[in-house]
Design a binder for these strands. Structure first.
Lengths: 193, 193
DNA sequence: GTCTATAGACGGATAGAC
DNA sequence: GTCTATCCGTCTATAGAC
């Protein structure tokens, strides 16, 4: 197996484990075990745990960009595209119930650890924030676009936290419906009066 | 110092450290160091780390109950009391910026660890949820009271997560104002039409 | 024969538990 | 104060490709 392939496998496994168990609670042995390689081989590819985290965040940023690009292509109107964002709470409901939002929980953990990768992790939030801002601008919300983007991001984060705490499917659906209704109102505000 | 006092000091220090550093990232040595007692004395009061967590959650539940009781006494109307809840985001803004919401972040960490104290930690959420439900009932929101309570809880959690990620004071104030406006509308829905 | 990917032993540090 | 487990990180050995 090429070095590149092995490296990718490591990042993939680490990504998954960091999400499910948390960064600090995941050991080198855990990752090596998941990839089925020895710890010695492991250190050939990554010298420290921090470097794996860097690579994982980078991979998540790339995956997120790809997802946002896909939404951009698939959604006809800006409202459709924002709806794609809202609906990840339903699409990923099962994993959110068990592990929370991958972006929010990583961010939270890194701030508690006072970890230097905080800045990089924040970029995940910024990616969503600026994408949403652009959508709200296209919706015609002008100067309020960034405010609306942050508000939607906050709602999504809060709902994810409670999905994780309560595992209540009806709650999830109610909140998603509420966000979609809210979006509808914003769209009408922009076009009509 | 009495055994009871020492125990209380340990719980207090652990509570603070668990909040600021996270549960798993806090060692016995950290707590013992903060209380200025020997590790030997430490084990006299708590045999395992899990038991300290139990005691910390218990203490947080008691503190929360006391706070809710205080709001109950101080707020004249149900809307006033709900506003007390909303305003903790401003009152505790500094610590939320650095460490997030104490309830949400503990919950999140415990689910990732698959820790048995999850159920106990959820009671913190339930405490707020049922208190808020009662307030919305008194506001005249009848059958929708629990839905509104969960929604407000979610908004508060989401805003706390983004305060922690972005440390943006203007955002905090905008969102608090938004929540208060939302509350106003709910109150009018209930009384008027 | 050299370079690359892998394996596994070893050491220092620190954790929790008694 | 000690004991055991575990974790991160280093070091050396080796198997195969070119």
């Amino acid at each position: 197996m090429s070095a590149r392939e092995t490296r990718d496998h490591i990042v993939e496994a680490a990504d998954d484990l960091f999400y499910r168990q948390g960064y600090e609670n995941t050991s080198f042995a855990d990752i090596a075990g998941a990839v089925r390689i020895s710890r010695g081989n492991f250190y050939y590819h990554f010298k420290t745990k921090d470097r794996i985290l860097d690579a994982v965040i980078e991979a998540r940023l790339a995956k997120t960009r790809a997802m946002l690009d896909r939404w951009e292509r698939e959604g006809e109107t800006a409202a459709d595209r924002i709806r794609c964002f809202i609906r990840i709470l339903i699409v990923n409901r099962a994993s959110i119930e068990r592990y929370g939002c991958p972006v929010g929980t990583l961010m939270t953990e890194l701030t508690k650890l006072g970890h230097s990768a905080q800045t990089e992790a924040t970029k995940l939030f910024i990616l969503f924030r600026s994408w949403l801002t652009r959508q709200f601008e296209q919706l015609g919300c002008g100067g309020k676009a960034d405010d609306l983007a942050l508000h939607l991001l906050a709602m999504s984060q809060g709902v994810a936290t409670l999905i994780n705490a309560f595992q209540d499917e009806a709650f999830t659906e109610r909140e998603v419906a509420r966000m979609e209704a809210w979006l509808e109102t914003r769209a009408q505000d922009a076009t009509g009066g």
